[in-house]
Design a protein around this nucleic acid. Structure first.
Lengths: 338, 338
DNA sequence: TTGAAAGCGCTAACAC
DNA sequence: GTGTTAGCGCTTTCAA
């Protein structure tokens, strides 16, 4: 019942505990007699010996695992980011430990407390521009990499999709189709991707000689379907006419589908709709959603690479990678009807 | 740069390290003079002291965190299970650490190695009926709870949805609509939910005086869209005629949509389709998918409750909870046309 | 109420 | 090539 310790292994193999340690550790195994090493290995095997990671970690102050903090796993953009990170880490010596915070300050604090002392490095997917916990982790000397979002005033490596380009591609696409009156559903401005996209929108509209009617701009509290429906309904009922809407997420776009149907309009005949991220199944909607494909797996992979680099060099040259995104044109956008 | 230790706090507060320990620990704080305690707390605060979890864990052999092992986070059925577990754990002293294994034996082994020595208990969502790692964890005395699937020969508490009832409800529904020739797409039989459902199918068909044509039964390797399409295409091309298909997952059902469209047929006019799980967006497909809603969040919550119980009592009375599921009838099933 | 001291299981100098 | 020893940071007896 009681778990065997190194001491037990050493006793069984008839060697000193430190010899056992050396034999079990691949890097130091060459410092021990081959046959002795074999004996130790066999003893360990037969006892089912598993090293106590906490004792080892305490001694070496390395844990061979990295942590990843995710705000909301039920948001389909995050799981592939995790997978990407895992793909890279699988080829390293590190295991990946995840923590989901549910955008909740208390859970987030707990996640940081539980992880930051238990891992050799941290990938943080929080998109909050203000993020004291990230800053604190950096200050504590924990190697940190941000993914998907940026934190203000953090001198930290990061990997983000080119959200600005995504918006620009959408605006180009819509204007080519003749749209001039365009509504915009932004995410919360405390999140860096929202700010990036809003700035890109203003710039893109300006370049096309268009302006954004404040009544056609909404800043939602969260990126879900209901928020999208409510915001668009309000514009439909109280705003000036428009022929297209750019939503900051696919779920928001889905809400727009619902709102439009509720008012007896149809997409794309009356109103074109675009989403963001290209999550699963949006290509199977009716109509299939025009959206921006974000290289989610690559985001995670590059974040892991950056973290590996940061943990090795421990140098402080925060590299920020911006990964290209791609507009995927489907059935939810169409030529504006005269 | 160097993290402050308890020793530093004690020095700053002018007390012995053990007094500092007692002052910092809520349970032992009453054993120390109130003003002294305050002084220690203030010293800790000002130094930004964070206890070293590995040292504490090594000493107490408790970590105040529990682990959860998930085969595939990109499968939408899992994230809500995680959320459910978190909801319960948030009210406890435990933090939740996740690990995604990608159905990969090596990653799974690593996940177990990284977690099982680092947590006070484990929730395992692997659905493999044969699972030596789970058995090993149980043998090592780690409190374990299974969720969603069962492991053969494991005397372990578990929470599973009533998959059998789900299949029965589907068969009832389809027979009421006049279907007698029904195809079935099963998941891999090494997974316990597949076995449960197949058994339930046989029983339900028997009760309705129907039989399963072997040519209308496929066992796919994984629950994704492409597998579903390929399997159904094969039946369409080489099997006897049928008017309905029961797919073991929503993604498999989606593949059926594609296969049917590819052969110029339509759903539900020519063939009715049912899925499983009711993942997001399937209600927005064309046609909306008839499927079985699985209480995913409740699964996670109950698993966490069982784990909390198991960690407290450490008794070995493996309670297995079966949570009810509900058929959600939408547009993908219809009366069989004469 | 506080201090002294031991030790959780492991690794890494340092000797021999 | 192997044993000795110290100690990572913490909690928890045991004394005082």
């Amino acid at each position: 019942m009681k778990k065997p310790t190194l001491h037990d292994v050493a006793a069984k193999a008839g060697v000193h505990i430190s010899t056992a340690s050396r034999a079990l550790n691949a890097e130091t195994r060459n410092r021990v007699n081959t046959t002795t090493a074999k004996r130790v290995l066999r003893a360990a095997q037969s006892l089912g010996y598993q090293p106590n990671l906490m004792a080892r970690g305490l001694r070496t102050s390395r844990t061979h695992s990295v942590g990843m903090i995710i705000p909301d796993l039920t948001n389909p953009i995050f799981p592939p980011i995790v997978r990407g990170a895992e793909d890279v880490l699988a080829g390293s010596e590190y295991a990946l430990l995840l923590s989901n915070t549910d955008y909740d300050a208390i859970r987030e604090e707990r996640a940081f407390a539980a992880l930051s002392r238990l891992v050799d490095g941290l990938i943080i997917a929080s998109a909050h521009r203000e993020h004291p916990l990230t800053l604190a982790a950096v200050r504590d000397g924990v190697p940190v990499v941000l993914v998907n979002g940026l934190v203000d005033n953090a001198e930290v490596p990061a990997v983000v999709p080119d959200y600005g380009s995504g918006v620009a591609q959408i605006v180009d696409h819509l204007t080519k189709l003749g749209h001039t009156s365009i509504a915009y559903l932004s995410g919360p401005l405390v999140m860096s991707p929202s700010v990036t996209r809003l700035a890109a929108l203003r710039e893109a509209m300006r370049q096309h000689g268009l302006t954004i009617d404040p009544a056609l701009m909404a800043i939602v509290d969260s990126w879900n379907k209901d928020e999208g429906a409510a915001a668009l309904l309000k514009m439909l009922d109280h705003g000036p006419p428009f022929t297209a809407v750019i939503a900051n997420s696919d779920l928001l776009a889905l809400g727009c589908y619902a709102a439009i149907a509720e008012r007896g309009l149809s997409c794309p005949e009356d109103i074109s709709i675009t989403g963001f991220h290209d999550i699963p199944l949006v290509s199977n909607l009716d109509p299939p959603l025009t959206t921006v494909r974000v290289p989610r797996r690559a985001l995670g992979a590059e974040a892991a690479n950056l973290l590996l680099e940061a943990m090795q060099t421990r140098s402080r040259h925060p590299k920020v990678l911006t990964l290209p995104v791609e507009l995927v044109v489907r059935g939810s956008t169409a030529q504006v009807s005269k």
